[in-house]
Design a protein around this nucleic acid. Structure first.
Length: 297
DNA sequence: CGCGGTCAAGTGGCT
DNA sequence: AGCCACTTGACCGCG
């Protein structure tokens, strides 16, 4: 079991998500920003290794405007050696990596241009992982997309796009995650049947939308969609409801007892856990301690 | 230098 | 009809 957090480290004084406005785009600005983002990413990875946090989500913003028409610069070649070094570090420390394209990546949109832009974004993120030299156990996680009043058709449109428009490099990494209002675990399992994509499980989203599956059974169902030799073990997002706030809102800080209960409920199952909790590595460190106390790490 | 409005992209649920 | 929330900051113009 590996435990981690997404994108941002609040202890370090750098960000790997620096960007700039489209209006101020220039190649110089692009190169300088990517250089700083990758330097910061290196520092974050070192911090993670030193603190036993071996699961990490890379920010989508490593390369600003990477899939935008304005960006015609060959950043892939320019940063190939740097990305490779980062990948070597990741592999030599046996870290697990994911990326999570933003909400505008919608493969089943009725708008052909949205689908085209979505694929370009997936290609960009897959290329980052490819240039790092990471195998298919490093994943890209997206949601099912919209329902457009007819979810069954939307699910089949997703599968159609998957089979006819996605490059193999993307398909090898693509996973679908249950969301908190439209695509339940059951819907994701149908998508898995149609495409072979592994299902990333989100416990808080499952609490928001489900078909009555108890938590342990839900984790098992998602875990069964992962092929150990190709995909490695289940990746999941863990969070807890922020008390008194909108349903699905993430807590500020981990409640160790709840996390303890979740691990107890899933005893005997192995998985890598991404903590989607506001205070990032602070909670991830507490989670590592809880998992160690239960002998899960 | 700190604050707040706004930022490349989509969808659905709320008011 | 328009705003908000998504995993969320970060930038930039203004005072």
């Amino acid at each position: 079991m590996k435990i981690g957090y997404p994108c941002i480290n609040q202890t370090l004084d750098c960000s790997s998500s620096r960007t700039f406005r489209l209006a101020s785009y220039s190649e110089e600005r692009l190169v300088e920003t990517v250089k700083q983002n990758l330097a910061c990413l290196g520092r974050i990875l070192e911090y993670n290794v030193q603190h036993g946090l071996l699961f990490f989500r890379l920010t989508s913003d490593l390369v600003p405007f990477a899939s935008h028409a304005i960006n015609t610069y060959n950043w892939q070649d320019h940063f190939k050696p740097t990305l490779r070094q980062l990948g070597d570090y990741i592999r030599s420390h046996n870290m697990r990596i994911s990326m999570h394209p933003d909400q505008f990546v919608v493969l089943n949109s009725p708008n052909a241009n949205t689908v085209k832009n979505s694929i370009a974004e997936l290609v960009y993120q897959g290329t980052i992982l490819d240039l790092m030299g990471l195998d298919a156990t490093a994943k890209l996680q997206i949601h099912g997309g919209g329902a457009y009043g007819d979810k069954e058709s939307a699910i089949h449109r997703f599968a159609e796009v998957y089979h006819t428009m996605l490059p193999e490099e993307v398909k090898a990494r693509l996973c679908v995650e249950n969301d908190d209002r439209t695509y339940s675990l059951t819907d994701c399992l149908v998508l898995h049947e149609l495409t072979g994509m592994p299902v990333i499980f989100d416990n808080l989203h499952h609490e928001c939308v489900n078909n009555g599956e108890p938590m342990r059974e839900a984790v098992l169902l998602a875990a069964q969609t992962w092929q150990p030799e190709r995909d490695d073990i289940l990746m999941m997002d863990y969070s807890a409801q922020s008390p008194g706030e909108r349903k699905g809102k993430h807590v500020q800080s981990i409640e160790e007892q709840l996390f303890h209960d979740f691990l107890a409920e899933t005893e005997g199952l192995d998985m890598d856990i991404m903590l989607e909790i506001k205070d990032k590595e602070e909670s991830a460190l507490k989670a590592v301690a809880v998992a160690r106390s239960l002998g899960r790490i």
